[in-house]
Amino acid sequence: MTTADELREVARKCRVHIVDMVYRAQAGHPGGSLSEIDLLTALYKTQLNIRPSEPKWEDRDRFILSKGHASPGMYAILAEMGFISVEDLESYRVLGGICQGHVDMKWCPGVDFSAGSLGMGLSFGMGTAIAARLDGSDRQTYVMLGDGEIQEGSVWEAAMASAHHELGNLNVILDRNRIQNDDFCETQMRMFDIPAKWKAFGWNVMEIDGHSMESIVEGLEFLAQSNDGPSIIIAQTVKGKGISYMEDNPSFHGAAPNEEQYAQAMKELGVSA
C-alpha cells in the first residue's frame, strides 16, 4: 500500500518532469498538467490495473486523458510508472518523438486514446466500457475531463448515453481548475452548479479536494464502489499548482517559463541547482 507521503513524493517528481518538459520545448501546457498531477499520481499508483511492461495487455484498465493538451502530466506519470523512460520525456514536442504535443495512442506506450480535441474522451471511454461489459470483464475505464472541456456539447451526449446504458464501469475525474485557454471559466462560460448537472444526468457524484492525497484516495474509493451506473469525482484544483507564479494564473494555461522562472520553479520543487 502506497502511503500519502509516498504519493506526494511521486507527484513532486512528476511536477519536476512537467516543468522540465515545457521549459525544454518552450511550449506546451503546464497549468493543467500541474492541476491534474496529484489526481493522476494517486490513480496510477493506487487504482489502475495495468502492466507497464505489457502496455497493450487486453484486460488492462483504460485511462483516457480527454484534456489531451495536459500531456506533460500524463507523460510524467507514465515515466514514473515505467511505461516510458525519463529520457523519453525529452522527446516532448520534438519531431519523431513519442511524446507528441497531445497524447497519442499511436505514438506512446500506455496511452489509450489519441486526444487533443476537447470533448471526445468520455464518448471513447463509453465505448471501452461497453466493450468490457460485452467481454464479461470487470476492467474499469477512467476518463479525465477538464472543466472548460465540459462546455463541449458532445460531453453531455456521452453523459446522457452512459447513464442510459448504466455503465457502472465508467469513471470520470473532473479537473475543476477554473481556468481555460483565454481566461477564467467564470468569464468565458459560466457553468453554474456542475455537481447538480451530473446528478441530473443520472451520475453518482462526489466532490473532493484534488490536491489532498487523502481526499483523492477517498474519491477513487468512491468510484471503485459505485457500480450501479457511471460515477464522477469533481476535484477542486488549482491551475499551475505547486509553482507560485503559475498558480491560478491564466497566462500559464499554455505558456512555457523563461530561464529565470524555470530556476524559481525548480527551487520551489526542491531541486537543488
Binding site: M120, S123, G127, A131, A132, A161
Partner: peptide, 20 residues
C-alpha cells in the same frame, strides 16, 4: 446512442480499440 452522432462515432472508436 440516441440522437447523438458525435458520441456515436467515438463510442464506436472505443469499441474498435477494444477489439470489436
Amino acid at each position: 446512442c440516441g440522437i447523438g452522432e458525435q458520441n456515436m462515432l467515438l463510442v464506436a472508436a472505443g469499441m474498435a480499440a477494444s477489439g470489436y
